[in-house]
Design a protein around this nucleic acid. Structure first.
Lengths: 146, 146
DNA sequence: TAAGTTTATGCAAATCTTTGCAACTACGAA
DNA sequence: TTCGTAGTTGCAAAGATTTGCATAAACTTA
């Protein structure tokens, strides 16, 4: 089965309608390396679907997030970016607030924490969408010795 | 010592210049109940400093965050909101992605997790600025039994 | 206290994101 | 297959946030 078809099926299973826009946006995100911005999704997807609107990209991305199919990465200041959830390698992000560099944290580490918070609060944490901010090792050292 | 004066001193200690704008914005955030938006800070602060510009509010808030003096709360969709860090009651936030309601999690719970991630990654986590997304108890139950 | 350096501010414009509404379309039921 | 309904989309406009640049103010040093 093609990649797009499998994704569309997932979408359908989760109660979302399968439209050309959603399928193509999903494939665009899937095929791009790394996390891409709404603008990049828009440009990429529009090659295959010329009438596509940027607002649709934003709305679709919001739905896909709700369906648990994409990761969102909010880096301070810069626009939001997205990537397809990879079941083989689930992870959250660490963004350095000084240099903007991005690191990944294995899901297992996050999971233990998420479960602890869930116990305390009866909340269900979307650990998949977690973005942590802080200082990377290099910026941390720079700040310690100015 | 007045509230504003103490805050200004903190600002100075951390290497930030003390300006009328920063002092008043800080006091405005301090005196408002709950978390308030940039727009609200702007309106509140402008009563005391008529020439104030909204861009300055955004830049100031960014600095104050860097100085670790305010909490930022990013609720999906809605504009960013801020509150003064309260050393007596440090906490992070849980935002329900369905109904938007906000819950607090004690810092201790977050701290243990932050330290674990720090061990693994050599990153320093700003656990103070953490916003977790998920489903609150009520929305979770609604979704389980449709 | 005055001069020099560095950082912050205001303004205007750009960029990013959300929203209201009418037209359209996917999909379950008949 | 056709119909009806509810969910989606495009468009345009509003709202939120960031940025570049010239001016102004804060802090450091002499």
């Amino acid at each position: 089965m093609s990649c797009g078809k499998r994704l569309a099926e997932q979408l359908h299973e989760r109660g979302y309608r399968v439209t050309a826009q959603r399928t193509i946006i999903l494939e665009t995100i899937a095929h791009m390396e790394d996390h891409i911005s709404a603008q990049q999704v828009y440009e990429g997807a529009r090659e295959r679907l010329p009438g596509l609107n940027l607002a649709t990209v934003y709305r679709t991305v919001e739905s896909l997030k709700g369906a648990g199919m994409i990761n969102m990465l909010s880096t301070g200041g810069e626009p939001m970016r997205f990537s397809l959830c990879d079941p083989e390698h689930p992870h959250s992000h660490l963004v350095c607030r000084e240099c903007g560099s991005i690191f990944e944290v294995e899901a297992e580490e996050i999971e233990a924490f998420a479960r602890r918070v869930e116990e305390i609060t009866s909340f269900r944490i979307d650990s998949v969408h977690l973005t942590l901010e802080g200082l990377c090792q290099i910026c941390k050292q720079k700040q310690a010795a100015p």
